[in-house]
């Protein structure tokens, strides 16, 4: 079941869902709440042609520090007053300004989705990974791509995505205390 605006606000009041800073009243729709773009963006360095260097990500190499590898091919910038112009067919990583906490012992999960007003321009904000699992906490990382015909100007604090909250059927194992109830290590 998808939570309505009223149910989202109730869950926030009860502390089952945390959104910090709290969304403004006009950030809600009937079944979603908009989140805004943090000023910090991660930009991929342009590959240098003609050097005979072949750089490839191998996500299955567990011993490689994936985040460290990502850092080595990117830089962090802060969006200026003039905004950041995202050119066609470019991927950058962004974050929501809001911190989200879906408490592990509650029955909520969420999906981060794009906004139709931005999708019409060709902007996507995730790449096949929209699920925010029960127990997640943090700012939501966004994989932002401009698929459109023109560059798109991104501004700090703009409504960049929407969260749709769902109630799970039952409590996941990690939030269920049944078989281990009341037992602690020595």
């Amino acid at each position: 079941m998808i939570l309505t605006d009223r149910e989202i606000r109730t869950a926030i009041r009860k502390g089952s869902i945390i959104i910090d800073p709290a969304p403004s009243e006009d950030a809600y729709s009937s079944t979603s709440v908009d989140l805004t773009l943090d000023p910090a963006l991660t930009i991929f360095n342009e590959p240098k042609d003609g050097l005979g260097i072949d750089t490839v990500f191998d996500p299955m190499m567990r011993k490689v520090a994936a985040e460290e590898a990502l850092k080595s091919v990117t830089k962090t910038i802060v969006i200026s007053e003039d905004g950041f112009v995202l050119n066609r067919n470019k991927l950058i990583l962004g974050f929501t300004r809001e911190y989200i906490d879906l408490r592990v012992d509650t029955k909520y999960a969420a999906r981060v989705e794009g906004k139709s007003s931005l999708a019409r321009l060709g902007l996507s904000i995730h790449i096949t990974a929209p699920t925010i699992h029960a127990g997640f906490d943090g700012c939501v990382r966004l994989e932002i791509v401009n698929h459109g015909p023109l560059p798109i100007r991104l501004r700090s604090g703009m409504a960049i995505c929407q969260l749709i909250f769902e109630q799970t059927l039952g409590t996941p194992d990690k939030g269920y205390n049944g078989q281990f109830s009341g037992q602690k290590a020595e």
């Binding site: 994936a66 985040e67 592990v104 012992d105 996941p172 194992d173 990690k174 939030g175 269920y176 281990f180």
Partner: peptide, 24 residues
């Protein structure tokens, strides 16, 4: 915080992390 254990085998505990590891 990793919640409650999913399974226990001897001294090993199967736990669910708040996010995916780098290897998924």
């Amino acid at each position: 915080n990793v919640g409650y254990p999913i399974r226990i085998k001897g001294s090993s505990f199967l736990v669910e992390l708040p996010r995916e590891t780098s290897s998924g």
